[in-house]
Each structure stands twice: as structure tokens, then as C-alpha cells.
């Protein structure tokens, strides 16, 4: 199957983080030691956005409990 990803690496990482950190089954069992927590989402964002300014904007989006990458501001 030909893969049709036609976008920049940066966007691909954003898509990947959104899916890996925000989606998928959260499987909690008696022996579960650790599950991706809220802090982890922020670490993911730090990976994504290097500039301080953008990271701060992301943090405020995160604080308002919007999904990983947030909705675009009006």
C-alpha cells in the first residue's frame, strides 16, 4: 500500500503526538503502574514547540483543558 503522507515532518509529529497522547484505549488494570497523565501531554507539547512564546501559549491552552493542540483562537 502506497503511503500518501504528503506533509511536512513537523505536522506529521503533531498528528502523531495528538493520536498517541490523546487517543487510543486507556487500559487501567490492577497491575497498571503508570498511564500517560496530563503532565505528559505538556511534555509532548514541549517536544513540538521549541520557542518559549509558543510553549507558553500552549500551556494556557492546556490549562483550559482543551484537547492537545487546542482550537485556534478567534
Amino acid at each position: 500500500m502506497k503511503v500518501r503522507i504528503g506533509h511536512e515532518r513537523n505536522t506529521a509529529i503533531a498528528d502523531l503526538l495528538d493520536r498517541a497522547l490523546n487517543k487510543g484505549v486507556v487500559l487501567w488494570g490492577e497491575a497498571t503502574i503508570s498511564l500517560a497523565g496530563v503532565d505528559l501531554v505538556y511534555v509532548g507539547l514541549k517536544v513540538l514547540v521549541s520557542s518559549v512564546e509558543t510553549a507558553q501559549r500552549m500551556r494556557s491552552v492546556h490549562a483550559s483543558d482543551v484537547a492537545l493542540l487546542g482550537r485556534r483562537g478567534a
Binding site: L21, G24, V26, A31
Partner: peptide
């Protein structure tokens, strides 16, 4: 069925 990133089990 993907499991969300970060699931670690004892054994």
C-alpha cells in the same frame, strides 16, 4: 486496537 501512549504494567 491502539493503547494510549504510556501504559506500563508490572509484569
Amino acid at each position: 486496537l491502539p493503547v494510549r501512549f504510556g501504559a506500563v504494567f508490572s509484569d
